[in-house]
């Protein structure tokens, strides 16, 4: 069950795993995620399904080593099996032809962005991607993103690659150059918060895909709740994507840090 077919190391602490999971591969839609749990003591961790192949019955996930449990997943090798894998969870991305979309992704947030870019491109959108990271080594999936983007801007905090600056700098550059119909942002909560502030200023509709703490991932625990326009929403069943301008990111950041 859930055997790892292929492992690829994307950066120092990010790995890509192709997993045999035929039922999930068949049912999965763009933007949905799975919950992964290793061993008896493992945490239940939500991870976006980056790609799926119905014919080979596989799904692809990308994991960043950020703690004990994700370290365990990163350490898995080809041939290993994942004890518990459940999904696909969450609502699918609304795929439509919006016109020009700017996709602002940071760090490992690039991974969940990839399937959205692919699907949005396929229905005729013009895709401009801002690929941001702290430093050059943390830029992932550049080749794949390039393939499905009309234009790509890379920014690094330290200037080691692309433009020196933040994802918001790249995004604002694009906004000033051409008319943007939609912005999609995925990355650390603080990054999404500032992208959202920026696009609000320019009145550009913006979608953020949230990565809150979850346990069951099926709407049972409420750990993932966020305030969206003052209303409680569960990221696992009502999301993960929300209108970024309505999300209370400050509250979300507090809750993300609750167990740190």
């Amino acid at each position: 069950m859930n055997k790892i077919i292929k492992k690829e190391i994307l950066s120092d602490n990010v790995v890509k795993l192709k997993i045999k999971a035929p039922l999930i591969a068949k049912a999965r839609k763009t933007g949905q995620f799975v919950i992964v749990k290793l061993g008896k003591n493992g945490e239940r961790i939500p991870l976006t399904i980056v790609d799926a192949n119905v014919r080979s019955g596989t799904i692809t996930i990308i994991v960043q080593d950020v703690g004990k449990s994700s370290k365990g997943i990163c350490a898995l090798n080809e041939g290993d099996e994942i004890d518990d894998l459940v999904g696909p969870l969450g609502k699918a991305t609304h795929i439509a032809n919006y016109g020009t979309i700017v996709c602002a992704c940071g760090g490992v947030g690039t991974a969940p962005m990839l399937p959205i870019i692919k699907a949005m491109k396929k229905v005729g959108n013009k895709i401009i991607t801002i690929l941001a990271a702290k430093t050059k080594d943390l830029i992932i999936l550049e080749k794949e993103i390039k393939k499905f983007s009309n234009k790509i801007i890379i920014t690094t905090n330290d200037g080691s690659y692309g433009i020196k600056g933040l994802v918001t700098d790249g995004t604002e550059m694009v906004i000033k150059e051409e008319k943007i119909d939609l912005c999609i942002t995925i990355g650390p909560a603080i990054m999404m918060k500032y992208v959202s502030i920026l696009t609000k200023k320019y009145k550009i509709p913006t979608i953020a895909s949230l990565n809150t703490i979850m346990i069951d991932g099926t709407g049972m625990c409420g750990a993932c709740r966020v305030s969206v326009e003052g209303e409680n929403k569960f990221v696992c069943v009502d999301g993960p994507e929300f209108d970024a301008h309505k999300v209370n990111f400050d509250e979300m950041i507090i809750r993300l840090n609750a167990y740190k």
Partner: peptide, 25 residues
């Protein structure tokens, strides 16, 4: 399944959880 909240100010502060979350943990 889905836990109810009271929708009062401050209910989404850190350290406030549903009984479902606490007991599941």
């Amino acid at each position: 399944g889905a836990p109810n909240f009271m929708n009062i100010p401050g209910e989404n502060l850190a350290g406030i959880l549903s009984s479902n979350e606490y007991l599941t943990r």
